[in-house]
């Protein structure tokens, strides 16, 4: 609950005003642009399906190995170079043996991308921030442990879109994540993901 609260607060702080610019009077100028964008409605939205492989690090990797995930993102492109998006999915570690021992999670993330529109190719930097709902089962010296954890998660990376039709683009990202798990064994790792994006335009 604490982590959930924590995450929501941080997301709230981040998301509270990207649509407002700064500087004397500039806020109003940008607001006009924003309202123009708003009129476009769905035309600035995008949907993305990705597969990702995470090479975990440290003690988490020693216990649970690597993990694979399928994620779905839904977002909005703002004027200039910004995107805001929501991402969720399902991930499972490679040490999932059977019903008695394993670790899986559902990430619930909100993030932003800063992209460079070069035409066919759109490279970007991405930051996502949210929480992982972790389910884990293991034998604890004979006693079975079945935990549900909610932990703060964030991910920072770079990637690119390759537009191959007006609406479809391929997406590839490499990122580093450092999510909370246990204070002595955080869930860190490098994430390699690829997928397909659909831009409503």
């Amino acid at each position: 609950m604490k982590t959930l609260l924590y995450t929501l607060l941080i997301i709230f702080a981040f998301a509270s005003g990207r649509s407002f610019a700064d500087g004397p009077g500039v806020g109003k100028v940008s607001m006009k642009e924003d309202s123009q964008n708003a009129k476009k409605g769905w035309s600035s939205m995008f949907l993305e399906a990705d597969y990702s492989y995470t090479r975990h690090l440290g003690e988490y990797e020693e216990v649970w190995g690597s993990s694979q995930a399928a994620t779905l993102s839904f977002g909005k492109k703002f004027e200039k170079n910004w995107m805001l998006y929501f991402k969720t999915g399902y991930a499972k570690t490679s040490e999932w043996k059977d019903e008695r021992e394993g670790n899986s999670m559902i990430p619930v993330l909100l993030g932003g991308k800063y992209y460079f529109d070069l035409g066919t190719v759109m490279p970007y930097f991405a930051f996502t921030n949210g929480f992982n709902v972790i389910s884990q089962k293991y034998d604890n010296f004979g006693g079975k442990t079945d935990d549900m954890l909610v932990k703060y998660a964030w991910e920072l990376g770079a990637g690119t879109y390759v537009n191959f039709t007006k609406n479809f683009a391929l997406n590839a990202t490499v990122s580093y994540n450092s999510s909370f798990y246990y204070i002595d064994a955080q869930m860190t790792g490098f994430v390699y993901s690829g997928g397909l994006s659909y831009f409503f335009r």
Partner: peptide
């Protein structure tokens, strides 16, 4: 007149 446009054009920006 410090209209927002003028401010954007004429101030520090």
């Amino acid at each position: 007149n410090y209209t927002s446009l003028k401010i954007a054009k004429n101030s520090n920006l």
